[in-house]
């Protein structure tokens, strides 16, 4: 039996809330399954989710949070995968364009911006899960944060390349090595997280760019095509993944 949209939303928010407070994944799954079972019974009798939460989802989530065991170490296991894929994402683009360089501003700035971004997203997810936001507010905050992230990254990139001399500029062999290392890093993080999306998204983002650069098109055409094809490819990949997940969910 399918649950109402309101109940599904509550379960998704509950998961998000408990995840952002560092609870054990196994325990989160157990509680969510238990509540799903209860909600199905309620809804088959025509009653609503307010019978579970007493009208305040946030207060209810907090009452569960207080009784659940912390498992911060369990979540820290994702850190290496995050660092690897982040480094690979920042390195692969310039390496494909044959411009991989390192300078001090970027070496310090990128990790700093990445940590700040992770913190802000954590805050966003936590507020969102507890707050039952409207779609408009959710979209606004999400879009705002994405823009802020891009602005910060570009700022570090510009300041680094305009004001600083690189202490390392890769030769053409160097660039190939960086590409191979980045690809390995993506594969390794995908294996660590058991999620193929970390292979498909970089492939969608970088493979078209690489192919376009090595094609026989004119420079101007290359520039235009490579400005939108990678994003189109990423959108297609995300669409396919979502469709696949939906099919898997409807079969289960």
């Amino acid at each position: 039996m399918k649950l109402s949209a309101k109940s599904e939303e509550f379960l998704a928010n509950l998961r998000m809330y408990l995840m952002t407070s560092g609870k054990s994944e196994r325990e989160i799954d157990e509680v969510a399954d238990e509540l799903r079972d209860h909600l199905q019974e309620l809804e088959s009798r025509g009653e609503s989710i307010d019978n579970i939460t007493g009208g305040s989802p946030k207060r209810y989530m907090q009452s569960l949070e207080e009784e659940m065991a912390d498992d911060r170490a369990g979540w820290f296991k994702y850190l290496p995968a995050f660092i690897l894929s982040f480094a690979a994402f920042s390195a692969m683009g310039p390496a494909i364009r044959g411009e991989f360089e390192l300078n001090v501003v970027q070496l310090i700035g990128f990790p700093a911006v990445a940590s700040l971004t992770v913190f802000l997203y954590w805050l966003l997810f936590r507020r969102m899960a507890g707050g039952s936001w409207s779609n408009r507010k959710l979209f606004g905050m999400g879009a705002g944060l994405s823009v802020l992230t891009i602005v910060l990254f570009v700022a570090v990139l510009l300041v680094g390349s305009l004001l600083m001399e690189p202490f390392y500029s890769a030769s053409s062999t160097g660039n190939v090595i960086v590409i191979l290392l980045s690809a390995t890093a993506f594969a390794a993080s995908a294996a660590m997280l058991r999620s193929w999306i970390l292979v498909f998204i970089p492939m969608a983002l970088f493979l078209p760019e690489w192919l376009i650069r090595h094609s026989a098109m004119e420079e101007e055409t290359k520039l235009i095509v490579s400005s939108f094809v990678p994003f189109l490819a990423v959108a297609v990949v995300i669409g396919l993944v979502l469709a696949f997940e939906r099919r898997k969910a409807s079969k289960a």
Partner: peptide
């Protein structure tokens, strides 16, 4: 199991505004 506990409490005249409050206690 959870839902049945709420029903059994109800059979004994013990009804709750928020049925979900059994789950933190069960944890």
């Amino acid at each position: 199991y959870g839902y049945e506990m709420v029903e059994k409490l109800g059979e004994h005249g013990l009804t709750m505004v928020s049925e979900g409050s059994i789950y933190p206690v069960l944890l």
